[in-house]
Each structure stands twice: as structure tokens, then as C-alpha cells.
Amino acid sequence: MLHSTQEFLSGNAIPGASSALPVLDLSLMDGTAVEQQAFIQQLRLAARDVGFFYLTGHGQTIQKQQQILALARQFFALPLADKQQVQMIHSPHFRGYTGLGGELTRGQPDIREQFDMMREEAVPAQTDISPAWQGLIGPNQWPTALPQMKTELLDWQQSLSDITVKLMRALMLALEQPADALDATIKAGPYQHMKLIRYPGVDAKASSSKQGVGAHKDPGYLTLVVQDDQSGLEVETEQGWVAVAPLPGAFVVNIGELLELASNGYLKATLHRVVSPNSGIERYSCAFFMAAQLDATVPLLQLPSHLADEAKGPASDPNNPLFYQVGQNVLKGRLRSHRDVAAAHYAELAKAV
């Protein structure tokens, strides 16, 4: 089912959702030429005007999504000692468990606990760890108390990666580029980063902050989010902050800064945040971030003139410059977000960010 971005921008409700994000059906890309073109046109509008949308028809069942969220609940319900066994401070690759307030967004602590994982890889030979971003390459940490986590999450991460590659190629067609226009940047496999997240309830009267996650843009190509039935994710629009209500079975998708950069601002990376649930309520989600491989340099796409004329140029944050070189960009973000890991494993670099 397709809905116009005007429905979002005017605040009109979409059937089946209490939020007004566009709803796009990825299965249309496997349909007739007319269906494919309808999807590509809708994708272009959603990615240009909003930067956020719901994605259905992606091939992942509600049951599988619920299974992943149930695994997240199991992990966060473990005794603290079991979670600290895989605490991120032990990993120079920024993998593992982070407790409440352990990650910063724009310098402020987020009220969430999370488990981070990336592609399962061997550590490069010691002589090869240059430039510094190669320190991101390595194995994940896995809790011994939940041995099933490794297989289930690695399989899930790969399935989400495949969806984002298909979606990115559709975005290239929407920009009137060859579908494989950015394939050279993921030829060895896209950069993968996934989080299981728990947001505890916060008593607004007792706390000065309800920052589940502070306002930010995602740095990669594309993000997919599975939400439970609790609201909290919000998107900034010209009309103010809009709630992204859970839509059963749908992923929430947003455009990352690398696509904004590659399209000279035609595609929109949008500020978003998570507001903590009220006291007595917990919120769980799984977020997957796909970017170019770490050794890639993202190109500036040459858009046709009628699209180039609409490109606004990438938004620039002077306090958080974005680099075309992917590994440098990713490492900078991790150093800023996880100051304890940065100090433990990247002491000199940490001083510069």
C-alpha cells in the first residue's frame, strides 16, 4: 500500500497506523513494471521529503520480529553480572553491553541499556591496524548464559542487511542512477551494526531527563527499526516532533547521512529521538544500521539536472563534521558515544574528538 508524503506532512492519519509516516510495500519491487515504478516514485518522495517511512512487504514475519524482541527481553533480564561479562569496555571493537547512561548523544547520557553487535570478523594482523578505524574490525561478545543469541542474532542481522541492500538499489533507481551505483562501496559486504535496546520507564517528576536517545541523525546509509507496542520514537518535522507509532509487522526506515551526502542533500537524513516511557513501562526495540564498508569512500552521485536542482546540499553540523571516508566517520561516532571505551582503547584519539 502506498501513501503520499503529503499525508505525513499534513498530519493526516494513515489507515492501520496511529502515526502518519508514509507506508511503502517493498514487495512491489518484485511485481510488474508498473508496480515497481509506483514503489520507486513513492520511495523517492518519502526519502526526499520526510527521510522516514514504514516498510512492509519485506519478507520478515511478525513472529520472527517478536522472537527477536523476546530474545532482547531475555538478555536484559539476565543478572547484572551476566551482562557485565560482555560489557563493551572489554571490546576495542565497540561490541557488547552498555548500561543505563553509558552511551552519550550530543554529550548527554541516554537512558537505555543496550547490546551492540556488528559483523563477526577476525581481528586484523597487528601490523595492519592502521589507520585507526581498523580497530573496529573484530569479533562480537556473546553472553554464556544465552548461547542461542549468537546464531539467532547473526542470522537476523544478515537478513536485515539483505533488505537494506535491496532498498538502497531501489533508491538509486529513484535518483535515476544505475541500481548498482553504490555497490562498489559494499562490494565486500556493507558495514553492519545492530542494537538490542531496553528503555526503562522514567518518573518525570523525579527525573530531569526523559532522554531515551537524544536528537540525532544516523550516520550510515539506511536504518531499520523493529519496535514493540510502546511508542517513544519521534521525528522532527516542520510542524514539530511527530510520534512514530508502532505499526505491527512494519520496519521503521530512515535515511542516513551517507545517503544525504552522496545525493548532495536530495535524500534527507532527519533528526529523531526516543522519549523515555513513563514509570512502570518498558520499551524494547531492535535497530539495524547499514553503511558502506569501512574502507570505502562514498562518491558524490551525479544527479540529472531536474533532480540536482532540488538537492539542498547536505546539512552540516559544525560540531560533528561528516567525512566521505566511512571508517573515519564510524570511529569518530563511536569515540564520542562511548567515552569509557574510547578512553580504555583509543586514549590519544579520544582527546581529539
Rank of each mutant, 00 (worst) to 15 (best):
E260F: 13
L271W: 05
E282K: 09
H216C: 12
V225F: 02
G313C: 07
I137D: 06
Y97P: 00
L301A: 15
Q60D: 11
A188C: 01
V50L: 11
R339Y: 01
L224N: 03
Y266W: 13
N140D: 07
G99A: 14
L2T: 12
P248K: 04
I68H: 04
A38D: 10
Q328N: 13
F289R: 03
P314A: 14
P79W: 12
A347V: 05
F251A: 09
Y324L: 14
K217A: 05
G59C: 08
D228K: 06
F289V: 09
E120T: 09
F76H: 04
T144A: 15
L175Q: 11
M149L: 14
H58Y: 09
A188S: 13
Q42I: 01
A215E: 12
V202G: 06
G212A: 05
T164N: 06
R198P: 00
L167V: 11
D295R: 03
V274M: 06
Q67A: 13
Y284R: 00
H338V: 02
K187G: 04
Q302I: 08
T164I: 04
Q148E: 15
Q66Y: 04
A287L: 08
T164F: 07
A188F: 14
Y221A: 15
A215L: 02
F115Q: 02
A174C: 03
M290L: 08
S4W: 06
L28I: 00
E234R: 10
N254K: 06
F288T: 02
E348I: 05
A311R: 01
R119Y: 04
Q157G: 04
L171I: 12
A206N: 10
P131S: 07
E176N: 12
Q6D: 09
V244Y: 01
V253A: 01
G256N: 07
N319M: 09
A250L: 02
T56N: 03
L100N: 11
S285L: 01
M168V: 05
Q134D: 07
Q6N: 12
R334V: 00
D128C: 08
F115I: 06
L267Y: 15
P79I: 11
Q66M: 11
A145K: 08
E120W: 03
L71C: 02
E35N: 01
N329L: 06
V165Y: 05
A215K: 09
T5Y: 05
K64Y: 10
Q134I: 13
L43F: 05
S161D: 11
L9K: 15
P219A: 13
A72T: 10
M118F: 01
Q328I: 07
L9F: 05
V326G: 10
R169V: 07
D295M: 05
M1R: 10
Y221D: 13
R73T: 03
T127C: 05
L222D: 07
W156V: 01
V353Q: 09
A13K: 14
R73S: 08
I62C: 09
